[in-house]
């Protein structure tokens, strides 16, 4: 894979941050954006709609084997793991929860890291558990770019602090700085 991609993982306290990112991301953002956010297991509808209200780019919940397209934000569906395959498509999984989570941020990040290597940027946001720390480490191990929301900027700092302890982190940024980073990627 030669093209770039961005993956964002978040849990408790990340919803408003994601809304802000999506409302300020350039309309011409040229890469796919994967969103793996912890969400209620039995509520399948409504999340895409809620995120879409202010979003500058289209948000979709992919089906199994859907092709990955640039300029679209893809949200991990409830009660499935969202995996990214090296052949530019998604694979969902009904496998066991990891860190009590399905979707698991670790699994989405690790599979995306394997697929996109140094062309991946991984971003961990606010959250109340340790999911995402090993996933971000995988992004670093495959020489991608790693970003963590500044724990002082987070509603709940457990997830970001755990990521900082576990992975090589390139940038610790506030929400505004994350938005600026994505704008700069757009060029």
């Amino acid at each position: 894979m030669t093209n770039k991609a961005v993956i964002i993982g978040g849990s408790a306290g990340s919803f408003q941050v994601v809304i802000r990112i999506l409302s300020q991301i350039p309309k011409s953002f040229p890469y796919p954006l994967f969103l793996c956010l912890h969400r209620l297991k039995h509520v399948r509808e409504g999340f895409v709609e809620a995120l879409s209200i202010k979003s500058n780019i289209t948000i979709l919940e992919p089906n199994d084997k859907d092709r990955i397209k640039p300029g679209i934000a893809y949200l991990a569906p409830s009660n499935y793991h969202l995996l990214i395959e090296p052949e530019f498509h998604f694979a969902l999984s009904s496998g066991e929860p990891i860190n009590h989570s399905r979707p698991s941020i670790d699994l989405s990040f690790a599979s995306a890291a394997y697929a996109y290597r140094n062309n991946l940027t991984g971003i961990i946001l606010s959250g109340a558990n340790k999911d995402g720390a090993l996933g971000l480490k995988a992004v670093a191990d495959f020489e991608g770019t790693t970003i963590v929301q500044d724990p002082n900027d987070c509603q709940i700092r457990t997830m970001t602090e755990s990521a900082i302890k576990t992975a090589r982190v390139d940038h610790v940024l506030s929400t505004d700085q994350i938005i600026a980073f994505l704008a700069k990627m757009t060029g």
Partner: peptide
């Protein structure tokens, strides 16, 4: 088999 899921369950 789908490769990513195969890796994950094989590893486990």
């Amino acid at each position: 088999y789908a490769k990513s899921a195969f890796r994950i369950s094989l590893n486990s």
